[in-house]
Nucleic acid binder design. Structure first.
Length: 212
DNA sequence: GACCAGGCACATC
DNA sequence: GATGTGCATGGT
């Protein structure tokens, strides 16, 4: 029942927007950097920050770790909260180099639950950032919830609008087949709908889901 | 100028 | 456990 309606939503979104080809990044490490930089920030601003970093050298853990504090901050400045985000990226690198030889493959060798806990212990990485890394960088079947996901699901009466992250996540995984590819596309489609039509104001103008 | 954006940590009740 | 606040840039 819930599953049918969710899949109907998915089909309608997919028919409207097509495959989103997420995450918009060239490497798993770039996914991680983008996931931190996009916290409460428009993606267009993150793109500038990532371009700035790439203009210095290919975006790798070693490069990022080698950058002086001020150079890093100035590069990511367009993404906002640059002091905090510089610290968050450094906190991730400290764990990556301290415990996993600076090697993402070594970090990603952990099982999904252990990896999620490991990420959540890093200051600056919360549930959405951790799950984005799990799904889009490590390719694990973990459903990512974000502001748009909750807004779309509540406006279309799947969930109350004050639903917590964990509750929304469980709702999705309880009512969908556990498939990385489905979770990947579905979340990306939520974001696309959210950005285009499901905004705080005006509410739902021209939304392609009106008859859902 | 107000509002919004692919959150999170921390303080406080 | 719920609620409030600071963090910062750039587009609409």
């Amino acid at each position: 029942m819930h599953e049918e309606r969710l899949l109907a939503l998915y089909d309608k979104l997919y028919a409207s927007f097509g495959p989103r080809h997420w995450w918009p990044a060239d490497t798993p490490f770039e996914v991680i950097v983008g996931a931190v930089l996009t916290q409460n920030t428009a993606w267009s601003n993150v793109e500038r920050a990532i371009r700035n970093l790439q203009s210095i050298a290919p975006l790798t853990p070693d490069l990022l770790r080698s950058l002086p504090e001020e150079v890093l901050k100035q590069a990511i400045r367009p993404a906002g909260y640059f002091n905090q985000k510089a610290r968050k990226l450094r906190a991730f690198l400290a764990v990556l180099f301290g415990r996993f030889e600076g090697n993402l493959d070594t970090l990603f060798a952990l099982d999904t639950e252990t990896l999620r806990q490991c990420l959540l212990e890093i200051s600056g990485i919360g549930p959405e950032t951790a799950d984005s890394i799990l799904l889009y960088a490590a390719k694990r079947p973990v459903f990512v919830i974000d502001r748009y996901t909750i807004r779309v699901l509540s406006r279309h009466a799947f969930l109350p609008e004050d639903t917590s992250y964990a509750e929304a996540q469980r709702y999705m995984t309880d009512h969908l087949p556990e498939e990385t590819g489905l979770y990947n596309e579905f979340h990306a489609l939520f974001v696309e709908l959210g950005k285009r039509y499901c905004r705080p104001r005006p509410l739902c103008s021209g939304c392609p889901l009106e008859d859902l």
